[in-house]
Amino acid sequence: MIGTGRLVLRAPVDADRDAIAAINADPAVGAWLGGARSRAESDHFVDRVQAHFAEHGFGFYVVERRDDRRVIGLTGIWHVPEENPLLAGQVEIGWRFAPDAWGQGYATEAARAALDYGFDLSIDEIIAFTARTNLASQAVMRRLGMAYDPARDFEHPGVAEGDPLKPHVVFVGRPRAYP
């Protein structure tokens, strides 16, 4: 478990599946992830996150607000899955939050805690990537002090040709290289 002033980050448990499914099913969230996810797809994601925790001791954390214990999102670090062979095996930080939690600094607060934790594990580089058009996530990456690395930009293999989400940008974080 990782704590911040307003948030608790913890490994997901089966009781979180409904809240995670609601976030994953939201069309606004799905707009940056290739579409909203069905309950089965969301449960598969949770299964993968739980397996990653079991194997590596870290992964994508459920983000709860301290004041009401509501699950408002997920953030964390994990090894990029093999479905993305261009980056597979690298450690990625990512996040997704319920839209009513957007614009309140939760993503930056939670991601900063997860990034710090990753560097405490002696991970020497953590990347973040998103669609070139996802300026909100890129703003979080910049607030975390991550550096844009245009040499690593790529066309996402899981996104169809011609889809505006196919071109991706890559940001890099290194220990103590961020505020």
Rank of each mutant, 00 (worst) to 15 (best):
M1C: 08
I2V: 15
I2N: 11
G5D: 15
R6A: 13
A11E: 09
D14C: 06
D14P: 13
A19Q: 03
A22F: 13
N24S: 14
D26F: 05
D26E: 00
A28D: 11
G30R: 06
W32E: 00
G34P: 02
G34R: 00
A36D: 00
S38P: 12
D43E: 09
R48E: 09
F53Y: 13
H56N: 08
R65K: 01
R66P: 11
D67P: 04
R69C: 04
G76H: 06
V80T: 12
P85D: 09
A88W: 08
V91E: 01
G94E: 15
R96W: 04
F97L: 06
D100F: 06
G105M: 05
G105D: 11
A107K: 02
T108Q: 05
R112T: 14
D124Q: 02
E125M: 11
E125C: 08
E125I: 07
I127V: 10
A128H: 07
T130K: 00
A131E: 00
T133I: 10
N134I: 12
L135A: 12
S137K: 02
A139E: 13
A139R: 13
R142W: 08
R142S: 12
R143P: 03
M146P: 08
Y148M: 12
D149F: 12
P150T: 05
R152K: 06
F154Q: 06
V159D: 00
A160V: 08
G162F: 14
P167V: 13
V169A: 09
G173Y: 14
G173W: 10
